[in-house]
Design a protein around this nucleic acid. Structure first.
Lengths: 112, 112
DNA sequence: CGAATGTATCGACGTCTGTCAATTGACCTC
DNA sequence: GAGGTCAATTGACAGACGTCGATACATTCG
């Protein structure tokens, strides 16, 4: 392989990280739960739609995803339980937003 | 199996990101496959052990993980197929190393 | 009130996944 | 070669997961 520079300093300050020291059981389970929420194409598309629009109603996502209403509801629940999104009910609708801190924590876990 | 090459430069600059614009099906599937490899506590501990020691023999990981030899082999295969680690056979042993570029690509997909 | 609409839950189904015992394969050493 | 050691594969099994139709729950509007 060609040369590679290691940006060691950066943001490796807090939080459990995969690549620093060996993880214990609890840290591994916590991170695995987060990554499991990202391990499905439909959920990733859901997440990207929400992130791109800042706030999205469930009813807006069903059609572009090509999935049934129960399926969309199931996936939003999974993402919410993983702490990646939060929903707010206004009237008959539920509006979802990204939780940037949680995504950041997962991202930082992968810092080299 | 058609071989597809990813130049390092492209990996460093391009690549799908979850939070920028809505993902299409292919991008979502590609990322989901990567995150799925991270979605298991045993695999995360495996990965962190390899990353911490730079190079690790399979035989060294079986005991601290408390898993059977076939199970460890199964997980290393999963990680390798996701492109996160590579193995080199030397004599009777297989030594595993991290593939930083692949982890970086997944990490960058989560950039806000 | 009752009808309509958006969401969540339930039940069922097929598929995927994690696990291990048993076996096979590769390699080393005597 | 024979026997020993490490890794990969196979087969089997239980549990988790993605999906959808049907249904129940909430809220708004006549």
């Amino acid at each position: 392989m060609s040369e590679r520079t290691f940006p060691l300093v950066d943001l490796a300050e807090c939080c459990p990280t995969v690549l620093g020291a060996p993880l214990d059981d609890d840290e591994a389970a916590f991170l695995a739960h987060g990554f499991a929420a990202l391990a499905d194409p439909v959920r990733l598309r859901l997440l990207s739609m929400i992130a791109s629009a800042d706030e999205v109603c469930s009813c807006e996502m069903q059609e572009p995803l090509g999935k049934s209403q129960p399926t969309v509801s199931h996936h939003t629940k999974t993402l919410a339980e993983a702490g990646l999104i939060v929903g707010e009910k206004r009237g008959r609708w539920v509006y979802w937003r990204i939780v940037p801190e949680r995504l950041d924590a997962l991202r930082r876990a992968l810092v080299s």
